[in-house]
Every structure is written in structure tokens, then in C-alpha cells.
Amino acid sequence: MQRADQANSALENESTTTAAADPNTHILDTPLVRGEGKQVIDRVTLRKPRSGELRGVSLSDLVNLDVTALSKVLPRISTPTLTEFDVANIDPADLVQLGGIFAGFLMPKAAKARMESLSA
């Protein structure tokens, strides 16, 4: 029994480390629960959107991390795929973190390099 607990703990630590190593993955402070507890989403990975995935949304709203704009774009770029309902029910702290990841996608490489050099 103790070995099973140790193995489960090791797997949890490995998955947390993997998520922490991926700057585009956020481990949710408050997991999302779907279908009467049948599916629990505890982490979300975002990928850089293509221009077509930004359709129907104002770029200025996205830059300002407008909740309505994010609720339209996040389902298009998230793994697992979030629904607009999921985004509407996500903890505000988690939404801010996902918005920060998204905002990073909008920054030019030169600006990212400048920020990294300032923090080093």
C-alpha cells in the first residue's frame, strides 16, 4: 500500500513539474468540474492562435484581456478544449493567469527578449 502511495505521489510531482516547465500551461487553482463531477479539468494549456482564430473579436479587447473576448478565443486555443461556459465559470484568478499566457502570444519577439533581459 505504501509503495502505491509513493508511486502516485511521484506521478503527481512529475505531472506538476511538466506543467511548470511549460510556460503555456496553467495549473488551475480551482479545477473546473463538468458533467456532475465526471470530468475534472485541473490544468489548461494554450497554444499561440492563428489570425483566423481571432475572428469576430477586437484586438484591442484581447490586449485589454476583456472577459468576453477571452471567452471567445480561449476555447479555440485550449487543451483540453474549454467551452464558453467553462470560461464563464472559471475562477477569476485562473482567468487572469490564462489571460497573461494569451497576452504573451501577442508580444513581438523583440519585446519578449527585452523583458527577459530585464528580469535576468
Rank of each mutant, 00 (worst) to 15 (best):
V40C: 02
E116R: 15
Q39K: 14
L74T: 09
F102M: 14
L46E: 06
G56L: 03
A4R: 15
N24Q: 13
G100P: 12
A4P: 06
K109W: 01
D61A: 15
S119G: 03
L11G: 01
T68I: 07
G99R: 09
D42R: 14
Q39H: 07
R114M: 07
R34Q: 02
P49K: 01
A93L: 12
T68R: 08
N13E: 11
A113P: 01
N13F: 01
A4F: 15
E53Q: 06
S60D: 14
K109Y: 01
H26W: 08
R55T: 04
P92W: 13
P23M: 10
M107L: 12
V57F: 00
L106Q: 09
T83Q: 12
P75N: 09
E84A: 06
T83P: 07
R76G: 03
V87Q: 10
A88N: 15
N24P: 04
H26I: 00
R76Q: 15
L118S: 05
P23K: 08
L62K: 01
N24C: 14
Q2T: 12
L11K: 13
R50T: 01
L32S: 03
P80D: 12
R55P: 00
L59N: 12
D66T: 11
R114V: 10
L118R: 12
A93N: 12
L65E: 11
A88H: 13
T45F: 13
S119H: 03
D5T: 11
A93R: 09
R43H: 04
A111L: 12
P92Y: 10
R114P: 01
V73K: 11
V57N: 00
P80T: 05
E84R: 06
P92M: 02
E53Y: 00
A120E: 10
S58T: 00
L11E: 08
S58Y: 02
S9P: 01
R3N: 11
D91Y: 14
Q39V: 11
K38A: 10
G100Y: 04
S119L: 06
T83S: 15
L32Y: 00
F85R: 10
A20Q: 15
A110G: 09
S117D: 10
V63E: 05
R47M: 04
H26P: 06
L32I: 02
A10D: 04
A111K: 15
L46Q: 08
S58W: 02
T30F: 12
M1V: 11
Q2N: 07
G56T: 06
P108C: 09
N13A: 13
L70P: 05
K38F: 02
L28V: 01
S117C: 00
R43S: 03
G99A: 09
A120S: 12
S71P: 02
M107H: 10
A7E: 14
R43C: 00
D29L: 13
L46N: 07
R47Q: 05
S58H: 02
T79C: 03
G100C: 01
T81R: 15
T18F: 06
L65R: 05
L28A: 07
T30H: 11
P80N: 07
L28G: 05
R114D: 07
S51Y: 06
V33M: 10
T79Q: 14
M107P: 03
V57P: 05
T30Y: 14
N89Q: 14
A110S: 13
R43I: 00
K112T: 01
Q97M: 04
P80I: 02
A111Y: 04
K72W: 03
L95I: 05
L106T: 04
D91S: 09
A110D: 15
A20L: 08
D22W: 09
